[in-house]
């Protein structure tokens, strides 16, 4: 397969489970993505997705306990940037049996909140919770890289 010869580059970040700190994570991961040659408009999508994923981890996974941590692992692969957001699992994620559409929410058929996962799915190329051995939830999303986007920094 004709893929760019990029060696793995990774970033690990750990932050308090406190609303507002997702902005610090956003700026760290955006700088990492910029370094890797991800196009600017995709970085804007990445920032939105990362904030939504962190807020979910803080609000739901860690039940807003500031003593708990949110961990973020970013790695670059030949064809994609993969980001994992981990919480400590005070509350385990369970998928809603039939999630409401935006239209149904706007029509008042359910809470106007809870659109984060929908937004994430629209902005990135892959997203979903993945199973892991330890406690806590792990949400993984990925942005595909365009051919040739391999800056000198990650070779």
């Amino acid at each position: 397969m004709n893929t760019p010869a990029c060696s793995p580059a990774s970033l690990e970040l750990s932050l308090p489970s406190e609303l507002g700190y997702e902005v610090i994570a956003r700026d760290a991961v955006a700088a990492f993505a910029c370094r890797l040659g991800i196009p600017a408009e995709r970085i804007e999508d990445l920032k939105t997705v990362l904030c939504e994923a962190c807020i979910n981890a803080m609000e739901h996974g860690n039940s807003l306990d500031p003593g708990l941590r949110v961990q973020i692992f970013c790695r670059i692969e030949a064809e994609r940037l993969v980001v994992e957001v981990l919480d400590q699992g005070v509350s385990r994620y369970t998928a809603a049996p039939t999630p409401l559409s935006i239209g149904e929410k706007v029509a008042g058929q359910g809470s106007a909140r809870g659109m984060g996962l929908l937004l994430i799915s629209q902005l990135c190329d892959e997203a979903g919770f993945v199973t892991r051995s330890g406690p806590g939830n792990c949400f993984r999303f990925a942005f595909h890289r365009q051919p040739g986007h391999c800056s000198s920094g990650d070779r």
Binding site: A28, A30, A31, G153
Partner: peptide, 24 residues
């Protein structure tokens, strides 16, 4: 409040630390 960042030892990645610190 503590934020921990682990970076590869490759020039250029200092930018990630700069942006994280300035954001905080």
């Amino acid at each position: 409040r503590v934020i921990e960042l682990r970076l590869p030892s490759k020039l250029g990645y200092e930018r990630v630390a700069m942006d994280t610190a300035s954001s905080l």
